[in-house]
Simulated scan of single mutants.
Amino acid sequence: MIEMVLMSLALAVRIRKIEARTLIAEMEAKEKENLQHLLRMISHDISNPLSIIKSATYIARRSEADARPQISRVEKAAQSIEGIIQQVRKYDAVRSGKISLTLSPVSLRKALDDIPFYFSERAERKEITLTCESLDDDIWVFADEIALTHEVLNNLVSNAIKFTRLGGRVKVSAGALGDQAWIRVEDNGIGIPKSLLPQIFHASYPTTRQGTSDESGSGFGMPLVKTFVEKFGGDISIMSRDIAEKDDDGQEPRDHGTIITVRLKRSATASA
């Protein structure tokens, strides 16, 4: 009887080990697949600015005209590549825990008040009305102040401006309900195609698009935003209507654009 029990225990241990090895193998295979997706996307995103650099240098070498326009194209393409590399590094650092975040009460009033300083000039260049609702009563949330301001909000507002046409509108607002606070960035831009919406927060899928004024992007902005928000213990949701979706009358939809809402844990006071 004891021998049977011992044999059963030994068999159970072996099964557990096999299951563990299988799980590890599956995780490694999934990680490998994600890495392959990531590399394909990076290769795709970098190939465009590299093509610009090659064509610009080719034209500059064979032309007797002023080379400054071609040099400007090279500089812009190089900046695009640099931006992609920086976003990839930051995304990897956040996911792997290499970046240490200090969660403490952060003022949403201050975060929203800083947005015009960073984006008013960009909005003016596209004649976009940028509105940031000022909070009469401040709301405090648990977050890392630098990451919330420079990674989350800056990425969301930057995208809103990027995908809004000349003369459009971008609005940033915030509020609180119970023990949660929310930040909302909405625009009447071109929206996001339905085919991209399920993948918009996944770095391993190519979602990069040109802006309405041919602005470039890295494709890592939204995955980075989601990663930071989840590190804060919050969540993010998105609603969008693609301008390419025609209404029944064949016209552009009146409600085209995107609304992104970030929900964070609320802190009662600055010293909580």
Rank of each mutant, 00 (worst) to 15 (best):
A111Q: 11
S100Y: 10
G168W: 00
K194M: 06
Q79S: 15
I71C: 08
R169Q: 13
N159V: 02
A176C: 09
T164H: 00
I99V: 13
P116Q: 01
R165G: 12
L153C: 01
H150T: 13
L166P: 09
G189M: 03
K126F: 00
A181V: 06
A123M: 03
D137P: 07
T164S: 11
V141C: 00
L135Q: 05
W140N: 10
W140A: 09
L156V: 05
G97H: 06
G97D: 11
N155G: 11
D138L: 03
V157F: 00
L177I: 15
L130N: 05
T102Q: 12
R73Q: 14
E82I: 14
L101F: 08
I128P: 03
S104R: 14
L156G: 07
F119T: 04
K194A: 15
K162L: 04
S134I: 10
P105W: 00
S104I: 12
V152P: 09
D113E: 14
E121D: 14
T129F: 05
E145G: 10
L103Y: 02
E186G: 09
D138W: 01
Q70P: 08
L197Q: 13
S100P: 11
G175C: 10
V185D: 02
Q79R: 15
A77C: 10
S107M: 03
T129C: 03
S120W: 03
Y91R: 12
A176I: 07
I192S: 05
R95T: 13
K110H: 10
L197E: 12
I183W: 00
R95K: 15
N159H: 08
N159T: 03
I161M: 08
I183N: 00
R184W: 01
L103D: 10
E186P: 04
V74E: 10
V141T: 01
I99Q: 07
L197W: 00
G178T: 09
R122L: 15
L135T: 06
V141H: 00
V170H: 00
D114F: 03
I146H: 15
D138Y: 02
A176M: 08
W140E: 07
K98V: 07
H150A: 10
D92I: 14
A174V: 07
S104M: 14
A93R: 05
K162S: 07
G168A: 03
A147R: 07
D144G: 03
R169H: 13
E124D: 13
P105E: 03
F117K: 12
E151Y: 11
V94I: 15
R169D: 13
R125G: 05
S173P: 11
L130S: 03
A176H: 08
D136H: 09
S107L: 04
